Simulated assay, not measured.
Amino acid sequence: MNVKYVLALKGNPGNPDAPKKYYAQTKSVGDITLKQISREIAENSSTVSDTDVLAVLNDLTKILNRHLKNGEIVRFGDFGTFQINIKSEGAESEEKFTTAMITDTKVTYRPGSDVREMLNNIKFEKL
């Protein structure tokens, strides 16, 4: 199956007078839940049930959150790594900086070798 995309006409925010251009944007064709993933994993294994897999995936989510919250980089082998990143307002000096100046937090994901390989071989189809 190919990744679907649509074209969107967008202006250049750095140069509002520049002509607009068409850019590709991915378009999802659905989603999958953790419960559905657990069933799919269980179907490919003869030794565990989907309930067992779901329990492990739920614990994995809790552990991932705990370690990210502790400021650790979480490495999932060939799947990739997760890390907390922040944005903040600037301060005139270190003494004037407060945590209230932190404006955004996000989790950054960097793909591992298996996911990079998938990305290198991906095919696209206009929706």
Score class of each variant (00 low, 15 high):
Thr105Val: 06
Thr105Leu: 15
Lys126Ser: 04
Leu68Met: 04
Ser46Tyr: 10
Val3Lys: 10
Leu64Pro: 02
Asp31Arg: 13
Ile86Phe: 06
Asn12Cys: 08
Thr98Ala: 04
Ser28Tyr: 05
Val53Asn: 02
Ala55Glu: 08
Asn12Gly: 04
Lys20Tyr: 12
Lys126Val: 02
Ile41His: 02
Ala18Phe: 09
Tyr109Pro: 00
Lys4Met: 06
Gln36Glu: 14
Pro13Glu: 06
Asp52Ser: 13
Leu127Lys: 14
Glu43Ser: 15
Lys126Phe: 02
Pro111Met: 06
Pro13Ala: 03
Lys126His: 08
Pro19Phe: 01
Val56Cys: 04
Glu95Tyr: 08
Ala42Val: 10
Phe97Lys: 05
Ser113Gln: 11
Phe124Leu: 11
Val29Gly: 08
Ile86Val: 13
Lys96Gly: 06
Lys27Gln: 15
Arg110Glu: 00
His67Pro: 05
Lys4Val: 05
Thr99Pro: 02
Glu95Thr: 15
Glu94Lys: 15
Asn85Phe: 00
Val74His: 03
Asp78Arg: 14
Thr47Ile: 13
Glu92Leu: 14
Thr47Gln: 10
Val74Cys: 05
Asn15Arg: 11
Glu89Phe: 01
Arg66Asp: 13
Val74Gly: 04
Ile63Asn: 11
Asp31Cys: 03
Lys106Leu: 06
Tyr109Ser: 01
Arg39Ser: 14
Lys123Gln: 15
Asp50His: 10
Ile41Ser: 07
Tyr109Asp: 01
Tyr109Trp: 03
Leu64Ser: 05
Leu57Asp: 11
Ala55Val: 09
Val74Tyr: 01
Asn44Leu: 12
Pro13Ile: 07
Gly77Ala: 05
Lys4Leu: 12
Tyr23Met: 09
Val107Cys: 03
Val6Met: 11
Val53Lys: 01
Ser38Thr: 09
Leu68Gln: 07
Met1Phe: 03
Gly77Cys: 03
Val29Ser: 12
Thr51Tyr: 00
Thr103Asp: 09
Asp59Ser: 15
Lys10Cys: 02
Glu72Trp: 02
Arg116Trp: 02
Lys96Asn: 14
Thr47His: 09
Thr47Gly: 04
Lys21Glu: 10
Lys126Ala: 06
Glu94Gln: 08
Leu68Pro: 07
Ala55Cys: 09
Phe97Gly: 01
